[in-house]
């Protein structure tokens, strides 16, 4: 895909190719299981029998090199923040990040006296979708993932972006 990206002028063929690519990319994002704390249990529960994540195409992968989406589920501490950045850099493009739960969004209930808590994972990695809740229900996480799919569908990888 690298050779073809950002190459073509906007016309009707490229626009429909873009739509096809957007559909193909968004319907099977493989997620990187990065469960840190309590939200990880809800992420596991959404991958289990009752709310199945595989039916929307998400398969759990343990290695960042094989994943498209990183779901940061739980509190990120200062000790862990350096490793989050390293893992994000190991993922291959195109990559997306979902910040699950209020701890990953802004520090959560530990914002006030937490000397060791990173107040939001967007201080170290760029985030695409924020899912609020403490912890968010599996249905809320699935809605966040569907929003991410909509976002991926609106991308136009082949079109040359005008300067």
């Amino acid at each position: 895909m690298g050779i073809l990206e950002n190459k073509f002028q906007d016309n009707v063929i490229v626009a429909s190719m873009d739509k096809l690519l957007g559909w193909a990319r968004s319907t099977s994002p493989w997620y990187f299981q990065f469960g840190l704390a309590c939200c990880a249990i809800e992420m596991m529960a959404s991958a289990a029998s009752r709310h199945d994540l595989e039916r929307i195409g998400m398969m759990p992968r343990s290695s960042p090199r094989q994943a498209d989406v990183m779901i940061v589920a739980g509190t990120v501490t200062m000790k862990m923040a350096l490793r989050v950045k390293k893992l994000y850099e190991q993922m291959a493009d195109p990559k997306y990040v979902i910040s699950m739960g209020s701890c990953a969004t802004s520090g959560g209930p530990y914002w006030q006296h937490g000397y060791h808590v990173l107040k939001g994972v967007d201080l170290v990695v760029p985030v695409d979708v924020y899912v609020p809740g403490c912890p968010p229900r599996p249905e809320a996480l699935i809605e966040g993932l569907l929003k991410l799919q909509e976002k991926i569908q609106t991308e136009r990888p082949l079109t040359r972006k005008s300067v």
């Binding site: 840190l36 509190t75 501490t77 000790k79 209930p109 530990y110 006030q112 937490g114 000397y115 060791h116």
Partner: peptide, 22 residues
Amino acid sequence: GYLHRCFEKHSENVTYEQVIPF
């Protein structure tokens, strides 16, 4: 220590009822 969320420091700064969610 990768998940050290300072529970004991929080419990010194909030009231007794507020420690329960922590």
